[in-house]
Design a protein around this nucleic acid. Structure first.
Lengths: 195, 195
DNA sequence: GCTTTCTTTTAACAAATGGTAAAAAAGTAC
DNA sequence: GTACTTTTTTACCATTTGTTAAAAGAAAGC
């Protein structure tokens, strides 16, 4: 029997739920395993679930004139979905793919909607998580405006050191907004300036 | 007596409220006028209100080593606050300033919190608006990753033509992530390629 | 209206990043 | 283990954007 310890820890950062509220979500959670490179959301498919990365890393990308643009790499123990599709019920231009083998906890959109509509505190959880993710994304905007690629790279190393152990550099380069050749050059120059 | 037509229109895009729910917000809304260059949130001040720009334009900026970085320019009829401060109750590093004379509808954080806690549908409005703003911000991340400054400029021209009538170019340059000199050069080269 | 201040533009050079191509390294499949 | 595929690195040149400084233009104050 799953205990969903990490999910509960995550949710508790925003709203403290009583036992009834917490128990309401338990029957809605399914477990899904993905192998490396499997898709969680394919291009053109409607995103019907939200997922929590219990184990492993996902990336959110899209196809830009044949080039894969990685917009996000999910940290461990975070919620991920292709939000534009999830909220509009329209086909997703965003693709979600497993970077490593993954164990995901997923909830159907309709189940989540139900939960939201029956429990004001779950509605609040949804709002608070969105607020937090919005602020995170704003900070990333600031980093694009004010920082060089090198600084963005170094900050990412500090903030998510574990990601560098599991995620190909080309995805990281795209996340940082540069080509993998530029990232390679950056890494080389950093290496020399450190020695 | 204010009718808050634009606010209602905005909110209705997300959730249809019944009269009781709608009426609940009316006593919470205050009107505030700002002159050009007045501050809505000062640096170091806690953001105690959210505002809706009934008239005029606000910008969200912060001080980066003495340079003002404009992270956002509010379109007409949109909600604005310094969210990190608003949700954490901590002093704001973000500054919100009037670019033009403004008429704002504002709601105190505590009043809004109350509204959220008494009406699940208002909680839902908050969540849905946050989702939407999050998606908007994600799209801006994509534009930083995939587009040149010139393309970002052109897209902004298409999307917010009114902003260019009211907002100094230096703020727009910062919003686009470039210097005002670079924007000036861009505009010149676009002008020649059009003729 | 004149002066002062702030904003925008211009220019020349510097630095950062992209594009193309190919080699090297690492990972995967059989 | 070998062949094959994918990822990362290297190199060279092109392009974009930044930096510094100054001039031109526009707005604000008196």
């Amino acid at each position: 029997m799953e205990t969903y310890t990490e999910v509960r820890k995550f949710v508790s950062r925003f709203v403290i739920l009583n036992e009834e509220e917490w128990n309401a979500v338990l029957p809605l959670i399914k477990t899904r395993y993905l192998k490396k490179n499997d898709y969680f959301v394919r291009e053109g498919e409607v995103a019907k679930y939200i997922s929590f990365t219990e184990e492993g890393y996902l990336r959110v990308l899209y196809n830009h004139d044949g080039t894969e643009i990685t917009r996000d790499i999910s940290p461990l123990h975070s919620f991920v979905t292709a939000l534009p599709s999830f909220i509009s019920h329209k086909p997703s231009f965003e693709i979600i793919q497993a970077i490593t083998d993954c164990k995901l906890f997923i909830i159907y959109r309709d189940d989540l909607e139900n939960l939201y509509n029956h429990y004001i505190n779950w509605q609040k959880v949804g709002r608070r998580i969105m607020e937090e993710m919005f602020v995170e994304t704003q900070n990333r905007i600031y980093s694009f405006i004010t920082q060089s690629a090198e600084m963005r790279y170094k900050e990412m190393m500090n903030k998510f050191p574990d990601i560098f152990l599991h995620v190909p550099l080309q995805y990281i380069a795209s996340y940082l907004g540069i080509t993998s050749q530029s990232l390679s050059r950056l890494r080389k120059s950093i290496q020399f300036s450190e020695e």
